[in-house]
Write a protein that binds this DNA or RNA. Structure first.
Lengths: 184, 184
DNA sequence: CATCCATTTCAGAAATTTCTGAAACTTCAG
DNA sequence: CTGAAGTTTCAGAAATTTCTGAAATGGATG
């Protein structure tokens, strides 16, 4: 590795966190290198920086592409692929959320809807009810997400900064579609 | 397994999703069984339901406890430990978010703050800047989360249901002016 | 205390995931 | 075409994670 102390620390941290984030160590490290890099890097530069095999880096970059977390770039008179991460941090966050939703939530929502279709036997009454409740909750959250994700970053930021003031606002406004609350 | 078709489908799905959710197959399956169960279950009942070893179930339950995803119960004249998941689905969501934040975000926030302390060499100027930007963004989000998490579920639900109307609200939001008539 | 019953621990086995080098493939230039 | 430069694929090796049975632990009871 020929990375500065700062970069190395950051890269190793991302490597360690990788597995908790649903990627692996190598993918986390590659992302970290790209995230900090002043300019786009090609595969061999990443190999150099991380001391991992070319094939591993290649697979890692594919994985990052499948997450839409890196952008492909080209330089004149150079046929190598160069990679960067977006400048805009909020774009990164949006991507991360969208991709994790796709992988961690959407399949379950599909499954829950499927399970909810079948009429439950008497023994399954309670289970069926719980499934329905979970499905409704996930739908409420993903619908909200879809709507928030439509907003421009500017607007989103304004909401973020309003923080607890939103709670006050919600005070008067609870009338629309109350979701089922427990304890009838 | 002596689970109904419905339960079995649900359990297998949670097992498959487990690894994407940062737990393993067994833990996912145990959680699924408890989530659907009409009443608290003891370890041996789960062993019975899933056909896994007693020790594996024991470790899985420990893991679920470390996530605060299950509650311990006892029955009169029975010294076994029984487990349930909370009735209230929103409590579950809150726990899930809190625990994932704790595992996936807090350590990184700490690390970023630490890295940001050191004065960067000239070469690291851009890297240092990116780290600062990421730290600021994570702080903005976690502060927002902390504030939202203070709200009662009722209030949270009201916000969820307002959906895109919040975007409109963010529009004019220098002041708080509780209710301006929409669309002049 | 000894016993019973339940839970936990833990070392090794089994399963899964990650990583590598070698070969295959692709594209472009001459 | 042929070769050079780059990327991808993939089978097996290496590393890591999960799972198990056996033994250890805990704690209530008589």
């Amino acid at each position: 590795m020929h990375l500065s102390q700062l970069r190395q620390d950051f890269v190793l941290h991302f490597g360690e966190m990788g597995s908790r984030w649903g990627i692996n160590r190598t993918v986390g490290q590659i992302y970290a290198v790209l995230f900090l890099s002043d300019e786009p890097l090609c595969a061999d530069e990443i190999v150099e920086a991380l001391g991992l095999s070319r094939s591993n880096i290649s697979m890692g970059l594919k994985e990052l592409q499948s997450w839409n977390l890196v952008r492909l770039r080209h330089k004149p008179d150079d046929r190598r692929d160069y990679f960067t991460t977006p400048e805009d941090m909020w774009e990164i966050v949006r991507t991360l959320i969208a991709e994790r939703k796709k992988r961690e939530i959407d399949p379950t929502l599909t499954k829950l809807r499927e399970l909810e279709m079948a009429k439950p036997s008497a023994d399954d009454a309670h289970a069926h009810e719980r499934i329905a409740e979970l499905r409704a909750l996930i739908e409420a959250m993903t619908n909200f997400y879809d709507e928030m994700n439509q907003l421009e970053t500017e607007r989103l930021l304004a909401l973020l900064n309003m923080g607890s003031k939103l709670g006050k606002f919600a005070q008067g406004a609870g009338k629309i579609l109350p979701l089922r609350r427990k304890k009838g």
